[in-house]
Design a protein around this nucleic acid. Sequence first.
DNA 1: CCCGGTCATTGGTCTGATCACTCGCGCGGT
DNA 2: ACCGCGCGAGTGATCAGACCAATGACCGGG
Lengths: 239, 239
Amino acid sequence: MEDLDARTAPPKGTVTQRVIDQIKAMIAEGLLGPGQRLPTERDLAAQLGVSRSSMREAVRALTFMGALESRHGSGVYVTQLAAGDLLESFGVVADLSRGPQLVELLEVRKVLESTTTALAAARIDAGQLAEVEQHLLAMESTDDTEEILAHDLAFHRAINYAAGNDTMAAVLDGLSSRTFRARVWRGYQEEGAIDRTRREHRRIHRALVARDPESARIAAAAHVGEVEQWLRERLAESQ
Amino acid sequence: MEDLDARTAPPKGTVTQRVIDQIKAMIAEGLLGPGQRLPTERDLAAQLGVSRSSMREAVRALTFMGALESRHGSGVYVTQLAAGDLLESFGVVADLSRGPQLVELLEVRKVLESTTTALAAARIDAGQLAEVEQHLLAMESTDDTEEILAHDLAFHRAINYAAGNDTMAAVLDGLSSRTFRARVWRGYQEEGAIDRTRREHRRIHRALVARDPESARIAAAAHVGEVEQWLRERLAESQ
DNA sequence: CCCGGTCATTGGTCTGATCACTCGCGCGGT
DNA sequence: ACCGCGCGAGTGATCAGACCAATGACCGGG
């Protein structure tokens, strides 16, 4: 048994990479839909004429990327290909970035979060607003930094998703991965920035309540900008 | 030989996933610096007490993600961890997204590219501007769609990197992956949108020459917005 | 001193076996 | 006839070992 069609024709690069591209292509072309189950690793390996090892490496890579999901004892499935699935691995970028790149990531966050916050001011509904308020209150009624951090994340997360663009929200989730925020925040808070942060959060919340997109945009940009500026200065010092 | 330190202590999840996390942690904590070479797969597998297969799957996943790079016959190395390395895989997201998600991705691009274009208007130097002009001229002196597409990509790419934030530019590279643009553009051009695109590009270029960030921002937003709007309408029709 | 080949090292691939988890089939009790 | 439970086939997860292929340093000849 050899080539079934043109997909196996060009023997370029490594075997595993080729398999990755083939599976990716099958998904992109709709031959494999969201939620659908793939043939068994053994069958698929035989079909594409590669060993099971190579097939497994390909599946593992695509799983890591969020395109596939393998359930032990059941089979390999295509994910829903939702923004959250595919962008989960985006957090790794934030975790592995350092120095000037962290500043650049904060700039990206500043731009995107300004937008989501402005959109949220126009679109947020009562239930979502209540959730935002809940995290705001929780953040002001404790001094436990871990708890504050958790509610800080949830506060922005709720706003981001209220903006209606799940893809943008998923990217922001990645930019605010737990380890990323923890690394930056650790130092930021030590300089008594907690009160300022609370004030900025209240300002963002006020803009949401007032349904004022422009104020919301400015408040969010200023909020992220404060952290960005602090990080920028810390980098300049350490040099 | 067993646990060398606390990293191997928690036997959670699958073996491969644990190895992935361990290597990631080693990089994040600076035990492995950019460009540094890792022990051989065989040694590393023995050190962590896993089979070479599992180790290879882990390495493959991190390679796919852009954190590692393995050179046949030489060894496995940590990449420079630059924005381009880590965000290359971001293009997969664009390739696998469909329907409403494409619109959301274009919204993200609209927001980010508005920013980079505005920044470029303030920061671009003579050499970079010349490159932008070159692609603009090339785009206007041919009717070959493939060539136009290539110069279109290069046009925006040059502007994005001229803005100075490589991370943001790398994200935009991912959002403009060849297959993504080709899929959307194919239909877009067929409606005689080429002339309009050229006009919009000229407008962006004019704003750059005039060092006018606000005009540049608006021109870029309008440019991407046109495509976004077209895609939105096409989706509404097909439903 | 330079060039070319040689060979140990190392990633790439394949094979086959075994373990661990799922799920459905069928047996047995009610 | 129905329900519950156990068992076994199917499938992914892991391991072990072998061989192939690319690399790069070392060494001998020119």
